[in-house]
Simulated scan of single mutants.
Amino acid sequence: MNKSMLTGIVIGGTTALSLGAAAGYQAIKGPDYADVVQVAAVHETVKVPVQVCQQVQVSRQAKVKDEHRIAGTVIGGVLGGALGSQVGGGNGKKAATVIGVLGGGYAGNRIQKNMQEKDRVSHSEQRCKTVLRTEDKLRGYDVQYRLDDKLAVIRMAQPPTSNRIPVEDGQLMLSAVTAPPDTAPVVSN
């Protein structure tokens, strides 16, 4: 064997071993990227309590100044007595006057009661109640990706900025994209 042939074999063998080692290292190391297959926004419908207020006209009975209706009773008794004294004569006139006073007093009391109940005061009042309003909340993005010919899904707070996610030591590198705590991949076939 001549010297150049021996040099060629050594160089060729060394190159083959280097290329084989590089290919073996790449196979052990794994891929540098996971391919994004699909991105889907995840929404949730939630009920949010909201306070709703409005002005309402409220009517109440006015404060009564004469609770025992003395004025109505007295005025009714005087008028009833005056009318009763116009009837009959002698003892009948006295009896008619007493009955007029009693009847007039009772009637005056009832009339004042009815007038007091109808005496109303109105004012505006704010009334509030809590109602549930339905809102649509964005909860994140389900990102389906392919890594080593396997499909998996991960939930991320933001959609990926490209169609590839960097991989290091077989793990997705999500430092550029903030992900919620439940980011464990779900492997599916």
Rank of each mutant, 00 (worst) to 15 (best):
M1E: 14
M1S: 12
K3C: 08
G12N: 08
T14H: 07
T14E: 04
G20K: 04
A21V: 13
A22F: 13
A23T: 07
A27K: 10
I28E: 09
I28K: 09
K29W: 05
D32L: 12
D32T: 07
Y33P: 00
D35E: 12
D35N: 13
V39D: 02
A40T: 15
A41Y: 06
A41P: 14
E44Y: 03
V48P: 06
Q51A: 07
Q57W: 10
A62P: 03
A62H: 07
D66F: 02
H68T: 07
R69H: 09
I70W: 15
A71G: 08
A71D: 08
G72Y: 00
V74S: 01
G77C: 01
L79N: 00
G80E: 02
G81N: 04
L83M: 14
L83R: 04
V87D: 09
G88N: 09
G92R: 09
A96K: 06
G100E: 01
L102V: 15
G105N: 03
Y106P: 00
Y106S: 05
A107W: 00
M115A: 09
K118A: 14
D119W: 01
H123Q: 12
Q126T: 15
Q126A: 10
K129A: 10
T134H: 11
K137H: 13
D142H: 06
D142Y: 06
D142A: 08
V143Y: 00
R146W: 02
R146N: 12
L147R: 02
D148L: 05
D149P: 03
V153F: 01
N163Q: 13
R164L: 10
R164Q: 15
I165N: 02
P166K: 04
P166R: 03
V167C: 05
G170C: 01
Q171W: 00
S175P: 04
T178P: 13
T178C: 05
A179F: 04
P181H: 11
D182H: 08
A184D: 13
P185W: 03
P185R: 06
V186W: 10
V186R: 14
V186I: 15
